[in-house]
Amino acid sequence: MAGAPSLALRKPSVIPGFGLTLGFVLTYLGLVVLIPLAALVLKTAGLGWSGFLAIASDERTIAALWLSFSLSLVAAAINAVFGLVIAWVLVRYRFPGRRILDAMVDLPFALPTAVAGIALTALYAPNGWVGQYLEPLGIKVAYTPLGILVALVFIGIPFVVRTVQPVIEDLDSEVQEAAATLGATRLDTLARIVLPTLIPALLTGFALALARAVGEYGSVIFIAGNIPYVSEIAPLLIVVKLTEYNYAGATAIATLMLLISFALLLAINLLQAWSRRGFDRG
């Protein structure tokens, strides 16, 4: 769909391998991702519309989905802001310990989520290293939605940093210099020239962090209070339904999450394609 609309399947190209890679990619994607996901949809379809709607409109389902998606959006937004700052600092400034900091960013990718959950709970529980100082201030983190937010910020931060970083590295300093020579203040240059260039990458990072946060289970489960309607995330509700042998209910919620995520991702991908065209090539 990208590029000029045309009736042909693809634009002609002399580069070989289109058929081969398309075939392989679709087969692999189909076997590993699409067919199993189709089983999910199939199982949900077994419920019929009314059954699906009954689960989808259940107050508890809505509360859990709302919690998951709203906290994920907030976490992704926090990550977008701080991720941008971190990426900027790591690329543009030289200071002692920069490399260590740079390496550390990937930690949430590599640290198992269950370990992260246990470690974060140990930190933010009222008797934990951080929690004991927050408790007298009346701030409760562990076992509240705030705790979930902390976990989601933790797992999402590398997505933003790593997608924005290469773009900052490639920033064209000539344009900035030109702007500065023409009398633009640094803030102006940043807002008018630098930021727009970063937006597509920032959006990608935001989308990835969001998508990852929505489904997160391992790290959240330890630090959330898991109280229905208050701190019960959607993936936990799936697990609850599963232990009740309620496959239909579990798959219905999973399908709902999938639909919302897919819609969000697609929207962000399109937004990104649009902004890339607008700023880069335009």
């Binding site: 009222p126 008797n127 697990v239």
Partner: peptide
Amino acid sequence: TGARGSTTTFAQRGI
């Protein structure tokens, strides 16, 4: 989610 989790919450986390 489980009995063991509750014991840990109570004993280790002091909740």
